[in-house]
Structure formats: C-alpha cells, structure tokens
C-alpha cells in the first residue's frame, strides 16, 4: 500500500479525496433539504420567520474558529507543536461555543412562539439548522480525537494528512453554515 502511495506523489492523497467525495454527498443531503424548502415555500400556508440575532454571533464564532484552525495547521507545518495544540484547542472551544449559541438561538425561537410543529417553515428551520449543528458536533468529536493524539507524548506524529483532513472538514462546516444562513435570510 505504501509503495503504491509513493508511486503517486503528484496525485491527491486517497483519504483527502475520499473526504471531498463525502463532502459532496453531505452537500447533496442539504440540497435535498433546501430544495424541499423552496418547493414548500411556494405552496400555501407558509409563515416566514425572523432569525434570532444570536445566529449572527455564532457565525462570527465559527468564522474565527476557521481562522484558528488555519493557524494551528501553520504551526504544525513549522513543527511548533505547543502552539499547534493551543490553536487546535481554541478551535475546539469555539466549536463548542458555536453549538451552544445555536442551542440558545433555538430556545429563543421556541419562546417567541416559533415552535417545531407550528408551521412547516419552522419545522424546516429547526431541521436544517439542527442537522448542521450535528455536523459541527461530529467535527468537534474529530477535533477532540486529533487533540488527544497531539498530547500523546509517547508517539510523535508529524503526518500532515490528518491535520489537512480536519482543516478541510472544518472549513466545510463553516462555509456550509454561511451558505445556510444566507439562504435562510434571503429566502424566507
């Protein structure tokens, strides 16, 4: 296997490629939801909604987390492992804060009368934002694993591939959120 991979130096690493294909399939799932949303919106009985302000704060948080993960990768490449762990940990914290903010946003929505079952538009809002949060949580768990591995003193690992994979996925959930936010703001 290693021999094969060495032969293909100029090709993209198979694991990275696998991740890209997986991202395409996640995109398809959200395409399913958003196109169902558009179809539904053009039918009768659609109540439009106002997004809670807190979603904008969470947007800022996830954008900052994308920056910190880039910083962590840069440190990793310079072998500054202490800095690397620090930036990685802050990304993790920011990720958790993001999910909490989303949750607070949901509670605010709920108390303002926008409940899950009241109207189809609200149901869609909960499902789309909720499933995105699930994907962020998946990323947080992956970050945790990478972080624990980074603290492992017995086995030092300078393989960039897992770091790159983590970066790609994290930027993906970031971009996905920005897309979903714009979508929900513009098409209500």
């Amino acid at each position: 296997m290693i021999a094969v991979m060495k032969e293909q130096k100029n090709k993209i690493h198979p694991h990275k490629f696998t991740l890209w294909v997986a991202l395409a399939s996640i995109v398809m799932m959200f395409t399913g939801f958003t196109s169902a949303y558009i179809v539904k919106r053009n039918m009768a009985n659609w109540i439009s909604f106002q997004l809670p302000k807190i979603f904008w704060y969470s947007t800022a948080v996830i954008i900052i987390s994308s920056i910190t993960i880039i910083l962590s990768r840069n440190c990793f490449r310079r072998r500054e492992m202490k800095q690397y762990r620090l930036w990685l940990a802050s990304t993790l914290v920011l990720g958790v804060i993001f999910v909490c903010l989303q949750y607070i946003g949901f509670t605010q929505l709920w108390h303002s009368g926008i409940t899950l079952t009241k109207n189809v538009s609200f149901s869609f809002l909960y499902i789309i934002v909720g499933l995105h949060a699930v994907h962020v949580l998946g990323g947080v768990i992956a970050l945790l694993v990478v972080l624990i591995k980074a603290y492992n003193v017995k086995r030092k690992n300078y393989n960039i591939v897992p770091v790159d994979l983590m970066n790609t996925y994290w930027h993906f959930v970031d971009l996905l959120w920005i897309y979903l936010l714009l979508f929900l703001v513009m098409i209500r």
Binding site: M28, F33, A36, I127
Partner: peptide, 16 residues
C-alpha cells in the same frame, strides 16, 4: 454518493 443522501433527508423528514 449523490442520490442516497437525498433519500436520507426524506427519511429524516418522515421520522419527524
């Protein structure tokens, strides 16, 4: 890879 996720979203909506 491109079509099964859409069925997954249908399954999620149906479960809700």
């Amino acid at each position: 890879v491109l079509s099964f996720p859409v069925l997954l979203s249908a399954v999620v909506l149906l479960l809700f």
